[in-house]
Simulated assay, not measured.
Amino acid sequence: MTASTFLDTQSGRRLAFHKTEGQGPCIVFLGGLKSDMEGTKAVHLETWARAQGRAFLRFDYSGHGESSGTFEEGCIGDWHQDTLDAVDTLTDGPLVVVGSSMGGWQALLLARARSDRIAGMVTIAAAPDFTEDGYWAGFSDAQKQELESAGFVALPSDYMEPYIVTRRMIEDGRQHLVLRQPLRLPFPVRCLQGTADTAVSTETALRLLEHATSDDMRLLLVKDADHRFSDGPCLALIEAALEEVLSAG
Rank of each mutant, 00 (worst) to 15 (best):
S230W: 12
L242D: 15
H211K: 06
G103M: 00
L219M: 13
E38P: 03
S68C: 14
L246I: 08
A205T: 10
L219C: 14
I238E: 09
T9G: 00
I238Y: 12
L219P: 12
L235Q: 07
D172V: 14
R218F: 13
F229S: 13
V87W: 02
Q181N: 15
V97E: 01
T195I: 15
C191Y: 10
A142C: 10
V28W: 02
W136G: 05
D129W: 14
L84A: 02
G12E: 01
E244I: 04
G24Q: 02
Y159K: 10
V98D: 04
W136S: 12
R207S: 08
S149D: 05
S201L: 10
P233H: 11
S100W: 00
A51N: 13
G53L: 01
R184D: 00
Q145M: 09
L183A: 05
A240M: 04
E203N: 12
P156Q: 04
T166C: 02
Q106T: 01
E203R: 08
D231P: 06
L109P: 09
D92Y: 06
R174K: 14
R13E: 07
G194S: 08
S11R: 01
D82S: 09
M37I: 03
A51Q: 14
S101D: 00
Q10I: 07
V97Y: 01
Y135C: 11
A16M: 07
S247I: 08
G249I: 00
A107K: 01
S62M: 00
G24S: 13
A196R: 04
D88N: 15
P182I: 06
G151V: 05
C26G: 15
L147Q: 10
D88P: 06
A49K: 07
S101F: 00
S157E: 04
E244H: 07
A42V: 05
R114N: 04
V153Q: 05
G12C: 01
E72A: 10
G12V: 01
L221P: 08
F59Y: 12
L206F: 09
T123A: 08
L192I: 04
D226F: 11
A126F: 02
C75H: 03
S149P: 09
T202C: 12
D36I: 15
W48Q: 15
A125N: 02
F29M: 11
L30F: 06
V122I: 08
E66M: 10
A111G: 09
C26T: 11
W105M: 03
H227S: 14
